[in-house]
Simulated scan of single mutants.
Amino acid sequence: MSILIDRDQGISSPALVPADGDLARDRGRGELTIGLINNMPDPALKATERQFMKLLQAAAGPRRIRFHCFSLPSVKRSPEAKWHVESEYSDLSDLKQQKFDGLIVTGAEPVAPELDQEPYWRDLTDLIDWAKANTRSTIWSCLAAHAAVLHLDRIERRPLPAKCHGIFDCDAVTGDFLTRAAPAPLKISHSRLNEIAERDLMQAGYQVLTRSAQAGVDIFVRQYASRFVFFQGHPEYDALSLQREYLRDIGRYLAREREAYPHLPVSYFDAATEEKLARFEKRARHQRHPALTNELPALTLRADIAAGSAAAALFRNWLQYLGTDAEVPLPAR
C-alpha cells in the first residue's frame, strides 16, 4: 500500500501517490516518507492501518506524507488477512530500495514462549539493523519495542503478574522535544503481559521520557544514526480499541480458548458499566458458553479518557523532528 496523506485530504478514500514528476515539488513543500510495518494480529490489522493514517494526517500540519504499508512476511496470517497484505501492502523487499524518513513498527501476537523463538524473529532483527542506519527515526511499538531491546542489548522483558490493560496517566520525566506541548498527564493505552524494567533500560544507556506510577515505563529512546523511539503503550489506540480487546478476551474465555477471565481495563469504563460487567463475569464463570456473548450489557466509557490527545502531540513533534534539515542517511547497499 502506497498512499499520499495531505492535510485536507480525507483518508476514507486515499489518494494515489502523484506521478514522479511531482516528487521534487512535494519535497520542497516538506514532504516526508513514512513506512508502517504492520504486524498486528489479523483482527486488528486494518484498524491499525486506519489509526496510524488518521494520526499522521492529524499531526502533519502543512506537510504531505507518503505513507507505505508493509508487514513481515513471516507473521502467521489467516487466508483473508494474507490476501489483504499481499494485495494492499508493499513487499518488504521494496523497503530497502527507497529512502524513508521514519518507520513505525508494530508488534505481533506471540506464538512462541520466547521472543527470539518467534517465526518472524530473523525478519524483525534484520529490520532493526537496517533501520539503525537508514532512517532518521523509527518508532517501535509494544512487543516490537521489547523485541528491539532484546536484539540490541539483550534486555529481557519480564512477565507481569496480571495483564497491564487500560488507560494510564503517564508523566514526562525529561524535557525532551517529543513530549513538548503534550497534555499533562499523558493518558496512554497499555495492553501487554510483559514489561521492560526501567533499571535495565537505564543501565544499558536508554533514556526514559515518560512513566506511569501504575504501568511503569511508557516511552523511552536511544540514539543511533537513527533516533529509536520505543512505546510500551499504544498511543495510537482509538477510544474503542481496549473495548474490542476486552470483548475478544471474554469471547475466548467463553469458548475455552483461555483459562483466565480477563480483568477490566483500568480507568476505562464508567462506574455503572463496571458494575454491570462484574455481574456478567459472575454469570460467565457459572454458565461458560460462547452464546453468552450475545447477552453482554451495553458499555459506556469514562468521559475523561481523552483518546488521541496525547498521540496527536507526540506524533506532531515526531514529524517536526523528521522534517528538520538534518541529513537523512541513504539506504545501505
Rank of each mutant, 00 (worst) to 15 (best):
N294G: 14
F231Y: 14
F230E: 07
D238W: 11
D270F: 14
A260H: 08
A255R: 03
Q243H: 12
F220Q: 00
G233V: 05
Y253S: 02
A303D: 14
R258S: 02
F228S: 13
R256D: 04
Q223Y: 11
E257R: 06
R222I: 13
V266Y: 10
I219W: 01
P262I: 00
D249K: 00
P290A: 10
Y224W: 10
Q232Y: 05
F220H: 01
H234V: 13
S241V: 10
A291G: 11
A271D: 15
E295T: 10
A278G: 14
L296W: 06
R283W: 12
R211Q: 07
A298Q: 13
Q223M: 08
E295G: 06
F228K: 06
K276H: 13
R227S: 07
R285G: 15
R211Y: 03
P265G: 00
I305L: 12
E245F: 05
Y261V: 05
R283Y: 15
L296F: 11
P290T: 05
T210E: 03
A225T: 14
N294H: 13
K276A: 14
Y261T: 02
L264K: 01
I250Y: 00
P290G: 07
Y261R: 03
Q243V: 09
R248H: 06
T293G: 04
H234P: 12
E281F: 07
A260D: 12
A272C: 15
Q287L: 14
E274T: 11
A298S: 13
E281L: 12
L277P: 06
Q243L: 09
V217S: 02
L264C: 04
N294C: 09
T273Q: 08
E259R: 15
T210R: 01
R288D: 08
G251S: 11
A255F: 04
G216E: 01
H263T: 14
A260M: 09
T293Q: 02
R288P: 12
R258T: 01
A278K: 14
G216Y: 02
V217T: 06
K282I: 14
R285P: 08
E236P: 09
L240C: 07
S212I: 08
F220L: 02
K276S: 15
E245A: 08
D218I: 04
R248V: 05
D238Y: 06
A225I: 08
D218S: 10
L242H: 06
P262L: 00
V221E: 09
R285K: 15
Q232L: 13
F228R: 06
R279D: 15
R252L: 15
E236H: 13
R283C: 13
E274G: 05
V229W: 03
H289G: 07
H289P: 06
F280Q: 01
E257Y: 02
D249V: 05
L242Y: 03
A291C: 08
S212D: 00
A213T: 11
K282V: 10
Q232D: 07
V217K: 02
R244F: 12
F231C: 10
R252T: 09
A260P: 02
E236I: 10
H263A: 12
L292S: 07
S267W: 09
R283D: 12
A291E: 11
E274R: 15
Q214H: 10
